[in-house]
Nucleic acid binder design. Structure first.
Lengths: 197, 197
DNA sequence: GACTGACATGTCTGGACTGACAGGTCGAAG
DNA sequence: CTTCGACCTGTCAGTCCAGACATGTCAGTC
């Protein structure tokens, strides 16, 4: 009950704001937490059941169409606090993006540069998206979730801005080295074939 | 064979540089890729077997103590290239760090601020670690992996520097809001109890 | 000649996650 | 009155992965 499995904590955290059904939570995941912690039905419904069994949630209301509304219990709140305060954050998660960088050597220099240029563009779009969200956030309700969402939003903006700058720099680096190799090849044609490989 | 499972690509990528055994690869993972893509024995050995069965690797040498050295095949290289060029990068991976920010509202303001201050400090240490690694990188061999590792290193540095700055800013934000709420409470004592909760 | 430490390979259990499938209800519009 | 779309709940097969466990070999040294 302690290792990773943060879906559990995401659900508890959302239910801290207000009771909700599995269906409601799916919508919320799509709109708000989806980028941060994707989750599908196949996970949410069983997990809600387990959490209720464990006493971290209670079924606060049974509605139409078999709707079950869950509410956070004291034990549930304690579990969130325990996770935040007493378990160590994972500072080095698996990073597919970084892995791709490490493997870039398997491509030609042109292809690598293209990839990095594409990343620059994609990062710029992410920044724009987040700025658009920020613009609508003025009329958010004054809840804790909204306040801390604002901090998370700022983090996202800085992250993508950083990625945009870095990838532009990295693409330039690759391009510069391509050129250096070409110059070298002109000076010493015997090397040329090997460098192109 | 196409969805995620990037351990496969990490292994293929490392074997692109030179043939190695499962044991060798474990050491390399610990030292170099470990922060980016952790992997354990329990995963590496079965995966090598599968990759060899699929023809993406070949057993290039059988040594003492049952040692099996694997080498990348043409099909293996093609698979790396396919992954890099034709599969879409996951731009929004699960982020435990961000999830923690979203849930910070479950803590008191003091606790939240402490967490953010701790993060500032931890980020600073990460920057220092990466700078130390960078200092030793001057005498790295002049391979593709080394070149692209350099780009990845720079990414890491910028990421942690950004995190350091952001978390310091976020802690200040929380502190400022704490103060604002206190001032308000002094003006309107009836609200005090609710705000402290 | 016995011990130790690095070398080297694997298996197994159990939890997390994806993507697809399956089934049922209610309100409103045509 | 029927049909459609939104609502609402779940299951299942297959993969991925962590952590622990099990097994054995070789080189050097005391």
């Amino acid at each position: 009950m302690s290792t990773v499995m943060s879906l559990r904590h995401a659900l508890l955290g959302l239910l801290r704001e207000q009771p909700a059904s599995g269906y409601d939570l799916m919508q919320i995941f799509k709109l708000s937490l989806g980028n941060t912690w994707p989750a599908t039905q196949g996970q949410i419904y069983p997990e809600l059941g387990k959490l209720a069994d464990a006493g971290l949630l209670s079924v606060s209301e049974q509605g139409a169409r078999g709707r079950k509304e869950y509410a956070l219990t004291e034990a549930g709140l304690a579990e969130i606090r325990h996770w935040l305060l007493e378990t160590e954050p994972e500072l080095h998660p698996r990073s597919e993006s970084l892995l791709r960088i490490f493997l870039l050597g398997a491509l030609s220099r042109e292809e690598s540069e293209n990839y990095l240029r594409w990343l620059t563009e994609a990062s710029g779009k992410e920044v724009a998206t987040l700025e658009a969200i920020e613009a609508t956030s003025a009329d958010w309700p004054d809840t804790d979730l909204a306040e801390y969402s604002g901090l998370a939003l700022e983090y996202g903006k800085r992250l993508w801005l950083m990625t945009e700058e870095w990838s532009a720099w990295a693409a330039d680096q690759v391009a510069a080295r391509t050129k250096a190799k070409q110059d070298q090849a002109e000076r010493d044609p015997a090397q040329e074939e090997e460098d192109q490989k």
